[in-house]
Amino acid sequence: MPFLELDNLTKQYGHLYAVENVSLTVEQGEFISLLGPSGCGKTTTLQMIAGFVEATAGAIRLQGRDITHAPANSRGLGIVFQSYALFPHMTVAGNVSFGLEMQKVSKAERARRVDHALTLVHLDAYADRYPRELSGGQRQRVALARALVIQPPLLLLDEPLSNLDAKLREAMQFELRNIQQQVGTTTIMVTHDQAEAFSVSDRVVVMQSGKVMQIDTPYQVYEHPATDFISRFVGKTNMIPSAPGHPQRHIRPEKLRLVAAGSGRVNATVAERFFLGSQWFYHLTSDLGELTVTIPNDGSAPQAPGTVVGVQWDEANMRTLAEGRA
């Protein structure tokens, strides 16, 4: 029996389908990301699981129990809202402690767990502040601590790290993953950052205009995207023209190599180059059209604009998308 099951879940606002026939089964302890562009229905899906948005059709089953119409306060989930939704009249510690108070946890135990949760999100020094005295990223971490502290069986996170700097975000991703592995918390995280979705999830659900487009492991989503849209959404891609009647072919920029002119599959001219720190990013013009290539910054001199280079690739890395799915 799956831990959580969404069965043709649908939410309609007037004529707009915010979420349309979303089906998903989540196993106990799994980390799932909902990934998709702004407005594709990620928050709506999460809010239906949480019980704040009434599903128009379909069912939600948690451990076999139909909770589609169960009241939100009977579901026992931990939630981080996209807007944080902190209690403005309570201190940081008060916010984090609220869920424990509702569970009638003893005072001493509460203090210990609140302290632990705040340390986890690096906010132990801010316990007595009020939310309006915190920065956006600090508020977000309070929201995270508030959801984690109750150790819910299912954690719903709506872009829980969107306001953090790169370093803190990485640390929090690590913590989320850690908690999930140690405590076995099943987690559903909404994000529109593909790198984040890839780095922490067991499986990624890619959504577009309210519909699920692909459910797969991060590697599969990146290497074998089901549609043209996904291919572009989860990374950069080069379209390689093919003979008429044959399907369109794609290859990712990091699968292309720059070699000496004449020794590659095609010759190209460097139009522009960008320095990304760990990588060089090139725009090339060739007979195959515009090409983008990323080359690891291994310390060797980069190619100057105007240089003619050869472009090489392994045919095995070339992807074709099934006709009609693109």
């Binding site: 019980g51 704040f52 939100a72 306060n73 579901r75 026992g76 807007s83 902190l86 509702m102």
Partner: peptide
């Protein structure tokens, strides 16, 4: 008021009255 703040209280198990 942000209606989600009240929803947050419910999600943490508060009854309507407590919220």
């Amino acid at each position: 008021l942000d209606p989600q703040v009240e929803q947050a209280a419910l999600s943490f198990g508060a009854s309507r009255l407590t919220a």
